[in-house]
Amino acid sequence: MPICSDGGLVHDHHVALAPAMGADFVMMGRYFARFDQAAGAKLPTRDGFVKEYWGEGSNRARNWQCYGQGGQGLLFEEGVDSYVPYAGDLDEGLALTVAKLRTTMVSCGSRTLPEFRSTARLTLVSDQSFQESHANVTLRDTPVTIS
């Protein structure tokens, strides 16, 4: 049975971590919501910009037919209504994400996604290591920094 990484993927390293943890595919609504081409306003913050994001199962999406429960309408809200870090143009951002995923796979000795899924090994690292070099993972005994 295929495994889906459903929800929460925002950054490049999430796209690499999902198959490394066994996902066959990823849902990337929150990832794509960061770009200019996505719906939602671009808003200034103290630290830069964010974009509005709302999940398909949120009250804001108002997709009652999809999430209705036996004709009763939406009984509870499943989706998120929040903000994601602004990431600019989709073409540039997606190209960079794909390049980082390919580089991570090559660094781990994998040529295909199925091979990467089956051979990747994740190792916990200290908080200090994480702070000094972003997200550190060890895949197939090879330390790789994904940022």
Rank of each mutant, 00 (worst) to 15 (best):
N136F: 00
S110M: 07
R117W: 03
T104V: 15
T119R: 15
G7A: 07
M105R: 08
L139F: 12
D12Q: 12
W54E: 04
E132N: 13
G57V: 02
L101C: 10
V26T: 09
N59D: 13
D6G: 11
V80P: 00
V15N: 08
T145V: 11
A20E: 05
G40F: 08
R140L: 00
S107N: 14
A16K: 02
S82F: 11
S118H: 06
V26E: 08
E92F: 01
V98A: 10
S5N: 13
D6V: 04
Q72I: 01
A20D: 07
F130K: 11
P2C: 00
P2M: 02
T138R: 07
E92Y: 01
D89T: 03
S58M: 14
G57F: 03
T123G: 00
L139H: 04
A33R: 10
L96Y: 03
G29P: 02
R46K: 14
P44I: 08
E132R: 13
D36Q: 09
E78I: 01
A99R: 15
Y67H: 06
L139I: 12
A135H: 09
S147D: 05
E52R: 13
P2R: 07
L122Q: 08
G93P: 04
G93Q: 07
E115N: 03
Y86W: 10
G93N: 05
A23V: 02
V84F: 08
Y83W: 13
M21F: 07
P2E: 08
S82M: 10
W64E: 03
D91S: 11
L124T: 03
K100A: 07
V106L: 15
D89Q: 13
P114G: 12
T142C: 09
A18L: 09
S147R: 11
H134M: 04
I146W: 12
V10F: 11
W54T: 04
H134Y: 13
L101S: 02
A120C: 15
Q65T: 04
S110P: 04
L90Y: 14
L43Y: 04
R117G: 01
L124R: 08
R121G: 07
G88S: 00
D141T: 03
I146D: 00
G68F: 00
D24M: 03
G57W: 05
V84P: 04
T145D: 00
P44E: 15
V137Y: 11
G8N: 10
Q37F: 01
R117M: 12
W54D: 05
G71C: 11
G73E: 14
F32A: 12
I3G: 01
Y86R: 09
E115R: 08
Q69M: 11
